[in-house]
Design a protein around this nucleic acid. Structure first.
Lengths: 111, 111
DNA sequence: ATTATATACTGTGTATTACGATATATATAA
DNA sequence: TTATATATATCGTAATACACAGTATATAAT
């Protein structure tokens, strides 16, 4: 019960980071991102988390989006791509992520 | 500006984890924890964050506390120790933390 | 008929951290 | 003598990311 709450907390910021990493690799649509995240239990999330997050990243101009039709009558997909600004932001996140890992490794190492 | 916000977010859950790690090593008082966290810029925090966190961990019985007088007229210190329940919780957090690191390493590796 | 899959969106709630202040007691600097 | 810094703990309110549960549409499968 309590651990599940913690896992929600630990996702804050982390999810944004992961999504930018994935979109940096190649443009993705929301549903696809969700499906990919399914692979890691700790990163599993709902549409109601992903879509607002993507909208926020668009608003902040870290991403751009474009609709693309699909064949076979599937709903159209909104593809997200990373912008230059997004790349720079991601770069700084990578640095801070490493700082965090080092800090925690050090704290663990002290025991 | 935006990066600072992200750094706040990334601390959610992480700070709880770090504090339990530190108290697991040996009992600590609040001010001491804050001072130790100062060492890593990414983990820096305020009293107004640490103390409510400690109170919550007490309430959830992951910690116990006891006041201890100091010499030299300094204010007394409230020492926090980890409980058995806290140790079990921390153990699960360590597992989830590793899961998270693996997941992100994998996502980064895909690029 | 109903459920599942694929896709996207929205409103409300929860909980952690941040900001800024209060409080007390020494020691040191202006 | 007044102001500031250190050491210690507390509280009230704000900001905000993620969670829950629902809406919406169009196929395909049971």
């Amino acid at each position: 019960m309590k651990l599940e709450d913690w896992k929600s907390q630990i996702k804050k910021g982390t999810l944004e980071f992961c999504i930018l990493l994935m979109i940096d690799e190649k443009p993705c649509y929301g549903y696809e991102l969700m499906a990919k995240l399914e692979k890691w239990e700790i990163l599993r999330t709902k549409e109601s988390t992903i879509y607002p997050l993507l909208r926020r990243l668009l608003k902040e101009e870290f991403l751009t989006s474009s609709w693309q039709e699909t064949s076979e009558g599937l709903p159209p997909r909104k593809y997200y791509s990373i912008t230059q600004k997004g790349k720079e932001y991601l770069h700084m996140m990578l640095i801070e992520w490493d700082n965090l890992l080092s800090a925690i490794a050090e704290i663990k190492g002290e025991s």
